[in-house]
Structures are given as C-alpha cells and as structure tokens.
C-alpha cells in the first residue's frame, strides 16, 4: 500500500459538487427520513458555495438526487426567474450539466422555496423544499434538545394550546405560512413556510417530498401516499388563504395562490404566484400550443 492508494486524481470540483462521502451521508439520512415520515433527521450539512439560509439544505438534497438525466426546476416564491432561484439553477447546471426547465410538467426534480407548484405533481417527481427552521415547536420551545424530547414523547400539547389561544384571542387561527401538520399520525412537522394553500398538496400525494434545513442540519421527508394533517380543532375547519376568487391581472388565471401588488390608487392587483403557470396561461390565450397539467385546485377548491 502506498500514499497514492489514499488519494485520488485531482479534480477542481466533484460531479454534483458534493464529494462522494458527503453524498453517502445524505443518502443514508434520506433513507431514514423516508422510513420515519415527518421526523427530523440530523445530518452534518456540508458548506456549499451559497450562504446558509439561502437554500443550502435543499441544495444538498438536490445535489444528492441529481442524475445525468435529471430535469431540474427551481423556484423561489413560486417564480423560476426570481434571483435566488436563478442562482441555484445556474449552480446546478454548472456542477452537473442537468437539464433546466421552468415547466412543472417537464421537471423530474423541483427545488422550491416557500411554494408547491399549482399543477399536480406526479409519482415520478421529487419535490425538495428549502426549510429555514425545521422545528415546529420552536415558538413554544426554543431549546432544540428539549424540543427533540417533546417529539420523542409525541408531546404536542403546547402547540395545540397556542392555536387554541389564537382562536380565543382573534376568533381564528392566526398561523400564516408554515402551518404545522401531523405526518403519518405520529410526528408534527413544519411543511416549511409554504402558504396554507399548499399544505393539502402534501397529503396523500403521488410525489415524494424532501424538506431540508442546511443551517439547522435537519432533513425530513413525506413519502407518497402519506397522511399530512394540519393541526385543527374538529369544530374549526382548516382554512387556506382566501384566494379562490382572485383573478390574475396578467394571465386571467383564477383559483390559484396570488401575489398581491399594491397599486398607486390605493387598491391591489393580483398575479399568479406560480409564475410559469402564468406564462403558460398567457401563451395559451395567445393561441400557442401549451399544456397545462391537472391542477390541485379546481374552481378554487382543493381536489383530493
């Protein structure tokens, strides 16, 4: 045995950026995440060439999943050309030559910050959600060791109490995005700061979802056909954002999650948050051949 058996040919960068041992650790943790849906699995979380908090957790999962035939879509706030989405997509193709797309239907792998696309995801697709804070118990317990024990004991009483207090104080549950949900009847997870509109899309879905927090070094998964139930009281139904009747002023789309754009006159205009769906709707209106896939919401209602 010589020193050279310890080393390898020099390369400025590995294919898919992460070195082989980083990928193996990710694989091991991703398998465990699938085996215990919604349970936060700790991982080492290597530094990647982006600042922590900018999607480094999602990026490590995506880099591990990348194949030579992957077609990747990256969105931030629903938009493909949002600056950080563009930066991540450019990085992915720089380190792997993965094909890029803006079209949800064409993608095999979708990395997203804060949104789930409006077109239904299929069984061959993987959604990777970037997670800033993986701990749904943080508002009631900032100490991670204690929160971990609470998950172990399925001790979610204080979380329920917070929701109940909101009901009493404000007449409704005030949780905006990142609505906590019980996964597979056992672990409460934060679905990442997606709007309430998007949480039902994870419930008994056909696709596989990974959620990964690089800074906090935790990843978890929602396999296909897994129960994801937002925490609600039996007499107070879960309420998504009141967007069902809004109309996108650009594309004419209706019944999708909207961005509100304040107007000079004092009112608001709305545009579809899923930007490429908006583009497809405009193209279709212009008479171009465009395929819009089946949607999660029809007529403003979620269709299971």
């Amino acid at each position: 045995m010589t020193l050279s058996t310890l080393t390898r040919p020099w390369a400025a960068i590995s294919w898919g950026f992460l070195d082989a041992s980083a990928k193996r650790e990710m694989r091991r943790k991703m398998i465990k995440a699938i085996a215990v849906p919604g349970c936060q699995m700790p991982y080492a979380s290597r530094e990647v060439p982006m600042a922590r908090g900018w999607g480094t957790g999602g990026l490590q999962v995506t880099l591990t999943l990348l194949r030579t035939d992957s077609v990747v879509k990256v969105i931030d706030q629903g938009a493909d050309d949002s600056v950080n989405a563009a930066s991540i997509r450019r990085f992915l193709s720089r380190v792997s030559a993965a094909a890029e797309t803006w079209d949800t239907l064409e993608a095999t792998l979708i990395q997203s910050r804060h949104r789930v696309p409006e077109e239904r995801l299929r069984e061959d697709q993987v959604l990777v959600l970037q997670v800033p804070n993986p701990e749904p118990l943080r508002p009631v317990q900032p100490n991670m060791s204690i929160a971990r024990q609470m998950h172990a004991d399925a001790d979610y009483g204080r979380l329920w109490l917070v929701l109940y207090e909101q009901m009493v104080r404000s007449g409704r549950i005030m949780q905006g995005a990142a609505y906590p949900a019980l996964v597979n009847g056992r672990h409460v997870m934060t679905p990442s700061p997606i709007p309430r509109w998007d949480v039902p899309k994870l419930h008994m879905a056909r696709h596989l979802t990974f959620l990964s927090a690089g800074r906090e070094k935790r990843l978890y998964a929602v396999p296909p056909f897994t129960r994801v139930e937002p925490l609600v009281f039996s007499d107070v139904p879960y309420k998504v954002e009141d967007h069902a009747d809004l109309v996108c002023h650009r594309s004419g789309l209706r019944g999708v999650f909207m961005n509100e754009i304040p107007q000079d006159g004092g009112g608001s205009a709305f545009e579809a948050s899923d930007s490429h769906l908006g583009i497809k709707a405009i193209r279709r209106a212009e008479g171009a051949a465009t395929t819009i896939g089946p949607m999660w919401y029809e007529e403003g209602r979620f269709r299971p």
């Binding site: 600042a51 922590r52 908090g53 900018w54 480094t56 931030d76 706030q77 629903g78 949002s82 950080n84 910050r113 804060h114 949104r115 800033p132 409704r172 549950i173 005030m174 949780q175 905006g176 995005a177 990142a178 700061p193 997606i194 709007p195 309430r196 509109w197 800074r215 954002e241 009141d242 967007h243 999650f257 909207m258 961005n259 509100e260 948050s273």
Partner: peptide, 21 residues
C-alpha cells in the same frame, strides 16, 4: 451570517399568508 443576510431574500409568499390571516 448566512441566516442574517437571508432576510434580504423575498418573503412575499409568507407575508401574503400572514396578511390573509
């Protein structure tokens, strides 16, 4: 430092969700 500067990223979806509540 990364988390500190990440607040520069757009957060309008979460903001919209809170606004609705």
């Amino acid at each position: 430092s990364g988390f500190c500067i990440h607040f520069k990223l757009p957060h309008y979806v979460t903001f919209q969700s809170s606004l609705d509540a």
